[in-house]
Amino acid sequence: MKSSSIVFLAAFIALSASWGGFVLAPQLQLGRADQTKTVPAEEKYPLARPGLAQQGAEVYRSLGCVYCHSQQVGQNGVKVEVVLLDAGTNADNTISALAKVNAQLGKPENFIGLPKKLTEVADIGAADSIVKAVTESGGKIEVNVIPTGADISRGWGKRRTVAQDFIYDSVVQPGTRRAGPDLANVGSRLADANWQLRHLYAPQAEIKGSTMPAYRFLFEKRKVGKVTSADALKLTGEFAPPAGFEIVPTDDARALVAYLLSLHAEAPLFESPVTPPPAPAASTNTTIVAVRAEIKNYTASELLSVEGTAK
């Protein structure tokens, strides 16, 4: 080219095209996303993180956890299972009704040992006739949408993560490396705050042979007062502190653990359908409860009887 204007034109066209495609278009499509409703329960999703967990997100970022851990669950496919729950009061009626629709399935042996997986179908619509036949005969049947994939088989999540999962994160860190396991649902998987704290202090104590570095600088080693602190880590063996000393988490460690326990991404959404697990009977607020349970406040009498270890 003899002229620089063509060089600049080429650069301008190429860069503005990719800017339009990967900066502007995502902003237009996803940049104003707000809370949405889960399907079918129509609960609000996502919920903003509580304050301590929000601070923990800052700690996560500053420690560079993203360089070993990802926070996104992948999915390779999806399957739909039809599960027979109950044959109803007149089992023979149900069996014959089902046989009319699908001779293969309407056999007595399929009705033994309920609940039992009847079959897999291509999609929800394909199960309609089976569901209708069984329900109208008084039986109970359910159709479960189950995403499949390596991450899901490993128990790292029930469905793939999507944009909606991250709309309230200040720095979104889905990560591109797995030197350590994925953390998208660690709040469901490892909900014990104590375990998380011990694991941060000495990963090899909780998982033998772990390659995760120890984060002792997140903890404080101090002399035990009259009574050991309620939030001192319960360590054993080579990881326990010397006699007369205790290991206490700093605010950063607490915040980080609160953040980890707040990581959930399993609510069923339109773009990532999954049949939710049956709702637990009690309140699901294990997050804050679990962490708070370990951050006990001393009562006045305990404070008065203890030397200088109150928090």
Binding site: F8, A11, F12, L15, W19, F22, V23, P26, Q27, L30, G31, R32, A33, A163, Q164, F166, I167, Y168, D169, S170, V171, V172, P174
Partner: peptide
Amino acid sequence: FWFPWILSTAVLLLQFFPVRGVVQVAVAW
């Protein structure tokens, strides 16, 4: 020509006027 454009986009959209949610990831990548 390239570097100032991509750097200014990243600085503005990720640090001064952060975009929401995964759009950050799109811009960063």
